[in-house]
Design a binder for these strands. Structure first.
Length: 500
RNA sequence: GGUCCUGUGGCCGAGUGGCUAGGCAGAGCUCUGCAAAAGCUCGUACACCAGUUCGAAUCUGGUCGGGACCUCCA
């Protein structure tokens, strides 16, 4: 099999993936800050990495996928002072901060499940790793890359940059970064404008605080990922991922922390997923243009014309490469909904053909059709190996759909492709659709009883049609359609049905 | 201002120096009692201006437009 190539943000080029330990892959992805509902933009990132996780497994790697829950230390502003997001929200809702954390963690997991994202292998929380974070800060202090001011510990960026380029990830020089920094005013206790807090002194009334060598306080936002990734994946692991917005600050600081502590860049491959936009502007919590998954599934949002299922949204996202921005619109979602429906229809037809695979010859009568199919099938792996090009995989599936539907509907004779090719097609189509891309069929109503009832109605309608009693047959079909059940008369006299 | 990304047919979106992805919408046809579904056919798109080249939407330079990051956000 061809090699997997990954676009590495660190080197700004595609590189062949070579794991540190053959057969194993370690991946750390920055998870959500659970002080409010995740919006669709957050979901896009996690869906992208879910597919990457799934594909690595498909390739046979034993993957350890770690995705953290940020439940402490994430501050409101850029001043390294004031409340963290949890305490603020807790005050607002008059509950414990951990109630906020619990509520939105559960919500996050529910949404992930609806999108059919596999759970990570480890999902560590920042509050559960205070000790590890303190140890790491102590280590950085000992190495001389941090300093304490009145109970708060800062990372010394300018000192660090003298030995290692601070802005490697975003390809920026320290001087440029310093120019872009806002003057924070005279009362700043930091030595350098780019210095960031590793540990923050807590005021007495602060709701979340822990004892430390520097007094009561709480960890800075960036140290948790460094400490937890080291704990579960080691000082050096294969893949570190997250949204593109995290590269300039969060990931840059993570690299600095690990370098200052262990003298190593924590990850070989840095993967950054692009933003979801609305009318060309980034979807974000602070901009107020965020869609909540729930609003999408119910259609309850002023900008939405109708509800869209989780799988429609997942498919919509997979039609675009993860490194491109994706613009969110009704038109695009409706197109995705119809496209996905067509794909499932083709898969159902393929499933039926597969069960009749004995009707297919050992050698295809039409080598051109046969070979084209084989190329499209091989294209699944080839596309994914090229930096996880899910859009191309789906395009190949759509290329195969007319062949499948043609074989099923009789427009294409069944000797056109060989039994072996049909079976390969079924296996790969099935594996990719459900295992690699993680799509499941939206079935709100489906059970054996409904099937029996429909078979009865189909039978009655068939008899009516034989009598040329078309008013009766149309009545059955139309009334069912009112309920969202579509009857389709097939060529050989059979009838199939699908639910809208 | 700095760093970087991007500009593809009505819409969404892949992409390689030459062989015009794909989806949705639209038109015609086949099939059908009528439909639906399905199948077949149809759009010669690649911001603009130069340059490199036998040949560029794909490479280089410039112009214009859009966006991200530099401040919390996946």
């Amino acid at each position: 099999m061809a090699e997997l190539k990954i676009y590495n943000s660190l080197t700004r080029q595609k590189e062949v993936f070579v794991p540190i330990t053959p057969g194993y892959a370690g991946m750390y992805v920055c998870g959500p800050t659970v002080y409010s509902d995740v919006h669709l933009g957050n979901c896009r990132t996690f869906i992208s990495f879910d597919v990457i996780f799934r594909y690595l497994k498909y390739l046979g790697y034993r993957v350890r996928y770690v995705r953290n829950i940020t439940d402490a230390g994430h501050l409101e502003g850029d001043r390294d002072e004031g409340d963290d997001k949890f305490s603020k929200k807790a005050r607002l809702e008059q509950v414990e901060p951990m109630e906020i954390v619990q509520k939105y963690t559960i919500g996050f997991h529910q949404v992930m499940k609806l999108f059919n994202n596999l759970p990570p292998n480890i999902e560590p929380a920042a509050t559960g790793h205070i000790l590890e974070q303190i140890e790491m800060i102590k280590h950085i202090l000992k190495n001389g890359y941090a300093y304490e001011v009145d109970g708060t510990v800062y990372f010394d960026v300018e000192k660090y940059d003298k030995e290692k380029p601070y802005g490697v990830l975003t390809n920026r020089k320290l001087e440029e970064l310093l120019e872009g920094t806002r003057d924070l005013g005279g009362q700043d206790e930091k030595k350098g404008r780019l210095d960031f807090a590793l540990w923050i002194k807590a005021r007495p009334e602060h709701l979340m605080q822990w004892p430390s060598p520097w007094g009561m306080g709480f960890p800075g936002w960036h140290i948790e990922c460094s400490a937890m990734s080291e704990k579960y994946l080691g000082k050096k692991f294969d893949i570190h991922g997250g949204g593109m917005d995290l590269a300039a600050t969060h990931h840059t600081n993570e690299i600095a922390q690990s370098e200052a502590c262990y003298n190593v860049n924590p990850a070989n491959y840095w993967i950054h997923t692009n933003m979801l936009t609305v009318n060309g502007a980034r979807m974000s919590k602070s901009a107020g243009n965020g869609f909540l998954p729930g609003e999408l599934f119910s259609g309850d949002h002023p900008l939405l014309e109708k509800a869209y299922s989780p799988m429609t949204v997942r498919f919509f996202m997979l039609q675009t490469h993860y490194r491109s921005t994706l613009d969110f619109s009704n038109e695009a979602l409706q197109a995705a909904e119809k496209g996905l429906k067509r794909l499932w229809e083709a898969f159902r037809n393929l499933d039926r053909l597969y069960r009749q695979s004995d009707q297919f010859p050992a050698v295809a009568s039409d080598s051109e059709t046969e070979n084209r199919c084989l190329e499209w099938i091989a294209g699944f792996d080839a596309s994914m190996n090229d930096d996880f090009n899910t859009a191309k995989v789906l395009a190949n599936m759509f290329e195969l759909a007319p062949v499948i539907n043609g074989l099923k509907g009789g427009q294409l004779s069944r000797d056109k492709i060989s039994k072996a090719t049909l079976e390969l097609l079924y296996r790969q189509f099935n594996t990719y659709l459900t295992d690699v891309l993680g799509l499941t069929e939206d079935k709100d109503v489906d059970n054996g009883r409904l099937d029996k009832v429909l078979q009865l109605l189909v039978e009655i309608r068939k008899e009516a049609r034989q009598r040329k009693d078309f008013s009766m047959s149309d009545k059955i079909r139309n009334e069912l359609q009112q309920q969202g059940i579509i009857l389709k008369d097939e060529k050989g006299g059979g009838v199939s049905w699908s639910i809208e």
